[in-house]
C-alpha cells in the first residue's frame, strides 16, 4: 500500500472515531434540505430540477469545509505527530495528497447521502438526470478546491481557529469575486482587464456553468488547477516550516 493511501485511511479513520464525521454529515444533510426547500423555493419554482439545491452548496461549504480542514495540519503540528509523520518514509506531497483525498472522499460521501432529494425530484417530475449528475460533479470539484484552500491554510498555522477563519475568508472572497457589487468595488481601482480577471476567479461563475449541465473544459480546469495550486502552496509552507 502506498504511503498516501495509508495517510488517507488514517485520516478517514480519525474523522469517524471523533464525532467530526457524524456532526458534519448531519449538519450538512439537514442544512442542505432546509435551505433547498425554504430558502431555495424548491416547490414554488414549479421546475423539476435541483438548481436551488446546488446553489446552496457554496454557502454550505463555506462553513463546513473549513471546519473539516482546520485540524488537518494544525493539529499534527500542535500534537507533535507531524514529527512522527514526516520521519516516516513519505514525501510531503504524498502526505498532503493523502490528507486531501480523505477529506475529498468524505465530502463525496456527504454528497451521495443527499440522494433522497434526487429521489424526491424524480418522484415529483421528470428532471434531466444528466444535468443533475453534472451538478453533483461540479459541486464535488468545488468542494475539492475549498478543501485544498483549507489544507494549505491549516499548514500555515498551529491554531485551528486561525486556520478556520483564514479558510472561510479566502473562500468567501472566491465565491463572491464575480458578484456585481464586488466587481463595482474593483472597477474604480483596477484597469478593466484586471477586473475581468477577478471575475474569472469567481468560483460561483464556474460552478453555475457546470451545474446547468454545461461541461466546459475551462470550468473543469479552473477547479482542478486551483486545487492543485493550493495543495502545492501547502506543501511549500510545510517545507518552509522544516527549514525555518
Amino acid at each position: 500500500m502506498s504511503p498516501q493511501s495509508a495517510v488517507m485511511r488514517r485520516e478517514l479513520r480519525s474523522y469517524f472515531v471523533t464525532p467530526v464525521a457524524y456532526v458534519f454529515l448531519v449538519i450538512f444533510l439537514v442544512l442542505a434540505g432546509i435551505l433547498t426547500f425554504y430558502a431555495g423555493d424548491f416547490y414554488e419554482r414549479g421546475q423539476a430540477d435541483l438548481q436551488p439545491f446546488f446553489m446552496m452548496h457554496p454557502w454550505l461549504y463555506l462553513i463546513l469545509v473549513p471546519a473539516l480542514t482546520m485540524r488537518m495540519w494544525a493539529e499534527e503540528t500542535r500534537g507533535g505527530t507531524l514529527e512522527l509523520l514526516l520521519t516516516l518514509p513519505i514525501t510531503l506531497w504524498q502526505a498532503m495528497l493523502g490528507k486531501f483525498l480523505a477529506a475529498w472522499l468524505f465530502i463525496g460521501l456527504a454528497l451521495v447521502l443527499t440522494f433522497p432529494i434526487w429521489i424526491t425530484v424524480n418522484y415529483l417530475g421528470s428532471p434531466d438526470n444528466g444535468v443533475i449528475l453534472a451538478g453533483y460533479l461540479g459541486s464535488w470539484l468545488m468542494a475539492g478546491t475549498f478543501i485544498a484552500i483549507g489544507a494549505c491554510l491549516s499548514a500555515l498555522t498551529r491554531s485551528q481557529v486561525v486556520a478556520f477563519i483564514l479558510t472561510a475568508l479566502v473562500c468567501v472572497l472566491l465565491i463572491l469575486a464575480g458578484h456585481p457589487q464586488v466587481l463595482d468595488f474593483f472597477q474604480g481601482a483596477l484597469p478593466r482587464k484586471l477586473v475581468n480577471g477577478v471575475a474569472h476567479l469567481s468560483m460561483l461563475r464556474h460552478f453555475e456553468a457546470i451545474s446547468r449541465g454545461v461541461l466546459d473544459v475551462r470550468d473543469l480546469l479552473y477547479f482542478l488547477l486551483s486545487t492543485l495550486g493550493w495543495l502545492l502552496a501547502g506543501v511549500l509552507l510545510l517545507d518552509l516550516k522544516r527549514t525555518r
Binding site: 500500500m1 502506498s2 504511503p3 493511501s5 495509508a6 495517510v7 485511511r9 488514517r10 479513520r13 480519525s14 472515531v17 471523533t18 500534537g79 507533535g80 505527530t81 514529527e83 512522527l84 520521519t87 516516516l88 518514509p89 513519505i90
Partner: peptide, 27 residues
C-alpha cells in the same frame, strides 16, 4: 527507527489501528 521526544502518536486511534497505520506507511 525513530522515537520522537514524548512519543507522539494519534491519540484517538487504538493501539492496533496506530500500529497498522505504521505497517502501511512502511509499505
Amino acid at each position: 527507527g525513530y522515537l520522537p521526544e514524548g512519543a507522539p502518536s494519534y491519540g484517538e486511534l487504538t493501539v492496533r489501528e496506530f500500529l497498522q497505520f505504521i505497517v502501511r506507511m512502511r509499505g
